[in-house]
Amino acid sequence: MREVLVIGGNRYFGKRLIARLLAAGDRVTVLNRGSAPPPPGALQLIADRDDEASLAAALGGRTFDVVVDQVCYTPRQAAIARRVFTGRTARYVMTSTVEVYEYEDSAGLVGEDVLDPATVIVTPQLPWQEPEFVAGHYGEGKRQAEAVFAAGPDFPYVAVRVAHVLGGADDFTGRLAHYADRIRSGEPVAVPATNHPATYIDVEEIAEFLFWVTRQDFTGPVNAASHGPLTTEDIVAAVAGALGADHRAVRYQPVEVGAVSPFSFARSYGMDTARAESLGFTFSHTESWLPRAVAETMGVN
């Protein structure tokens, strides 16, 4: 029986990951602040992961075969985790994001090698303890968190760079509802003047991929995305289809400066998944799950 610790991530694809770990016979411990109980069958530790003394005290003398960190957003959090978990785990899996590529613009799909976390400059003096700052620097926070784990001496980490996730009736983001509202009201959809496609992944597939990663021995960054990048128009068409509406009637309003709709991007966010596939994981194609994922999120049978 493996000992697996999951930090945060007690909802959305995190709970799906935990269900897979438990079904495989792993003993799963969930560490959070106590605001939500773990799924049935999992143990719980309560601690503030931002407080190093609290985290170390909660762990006591426990060690783990694998740690899956679902809520590491800053270099400060990564530094605390690295100090506390060095010598406590054989494998540390951090859930990262496609948005770490925010400075590596490319018309094609980017591979992991275009962003070596060991070359990223870490700026711990920035106000990473302020939630508004962290929210406004999401991609940069993840970049720097990866950099902390990648710095010597060797730490057995994996950074799973996750594409935009779709699907699930428990999707709490409200992003698809934005499009449903526009379709129902006839309001235009605001998009960048040049709107780029992006890579996506189904909520069940990312849970399956993370589960698979916990059973491998490779380290370093790895991209996770379904094949088939999607445009804003693809998302709108799927939402319209779920509503029984005509997506061809939707109007798009290009915006030079200002807020745009979710899933519309002024730069490319496409990821190449050759590394994961060479290691043995086969991703699906978005066309195989997009209509179903959109319908279930919107509560349409």
Rank of each mutant, 00 (worst) to 15 (best):
A107S: 04
A107D: 14
V110P: 01
G111I: 03
G111E: 02
D113A: 15
D113R: 11
L115K: 01
L115F: 14
L115I: 02
D116P: 05
P117G: 08
T119W: 04
T119R: 14
V120M: 04
V120A: 02
I121L: 14
V122D: 02
V122C: 04
P124G: 04
P124W: 10
Q125G: 14
L126Q: 15
E130R: 10
P131E: 13
P131A: 12
E132T: 14
F133N: 15
V134M: 13
V134P: 13
H137D: 11
Y138E: 13
Y138C: 13
G141L: 08
G141W: 06
G141I: 10
K142Q: 08
A145T: 05
E146I: 10
E146W: 10
A147I: 05
V148F: 01
A151T: 04
P153N: 05
P153W: 02
P153E: 07
P153H: 09
F155L: 03
P156S: 07
A159C: 05
V160R: 00
R161A: 12
A163D: 11
H164G: 08
L166H: 02
G167H: 03
G168W: 03
D171V: 10
F172M: 09
T173Q: 08
G174Q: 13
G174D: 09
G174C: 00
R175H: 09
R175C: 11
R175K: 15
L176N: 06
A177F: 05
A177V: 13
Y179N: 01
A180D: 07
R182M: 07
I183Q: 03
R184A: 15
R184W: 07
S185L: 08
S185H: 06
V189R: 05
V189P: 01
P192G: 05
A193T: 15
T194A: 09
N195P: 00
